[in-house]
């Protein structure tokens, strides 16, 4: 699955505008990737790597681990602001992110605190139907 993303970046908080959108991208949700992730972190459960095994656990298919989804969200922020320090990623998992299914990761700036040098970003993971599978907010500190 192609990992597409824009090269648009910001280098400091002065360049950030309220409401601006971070470059969205399509994360690699393939079971090849979830297998690789499981191998690295020592968490090789069928629910993440094998559709049939996941169905036996009552899931609709293999799912992308939540922490991997959070990693995708963090990657989006660092692609947008390479020098940002991510203070927090706070996610609400409304529905599973299914493996081998295209999803889109988006972010939008919804608060700027110039005193603190931080921005708040709405983050979402949606499927092709536009359904929010994961949403939340991230707080990142940018150079002043």
């Amino acid at each position: 699955m192609p990992d597409t993303h824009s090269t648009e970046t910001v280098s400091n908080i002065g360049e950030v505008e309220f409401g601006s959108e971070l470059p969205s991208f399509a994360p690699d949700t393939s079971t090849d990737n979830t297998k690789r992730f499981g191998k690295y972190v020592g968490w090789d459960s069928p629910r993440f790597t094998d559709h049939e095994g996941a169905r036996k656990e009552g899931l609709p298919g293999a799912i992308v681990p939540g922490v991997l989804s959070q990693g995708f969200l963090g990657a989006m922020i660092h692609r947008w602001a390479p020098d940002a320090e991510i203070i927090a990623i706070d996610t609400v998992f409304r529905a599973p992110v299914l493996a081998d299914v295209p999803h889109t990761i988006t972010g939008t700036v919804t608060d700027i605190d110039e005193d603190e040098g931080t921005v708040e970003i709405d983050i979402t993971i949606t499927n092709e139907a536009g359904e929010n599978r994961v949403f939340g907010t991230a707080t990142a500190k940018l150079p002043t």
Partner: peptide, 17 residues
């Protein structure tokens, strides 16, 4: 408990967008 929006930011968003 699962809300992440500040009311002021809702207002800013409505006007900005």
């Amino acid at each position: 408990d699962d809300g992440r929006a500040k009311v002021q930011n809702y207002c800013q968003w409505i006007r900005a967008k």
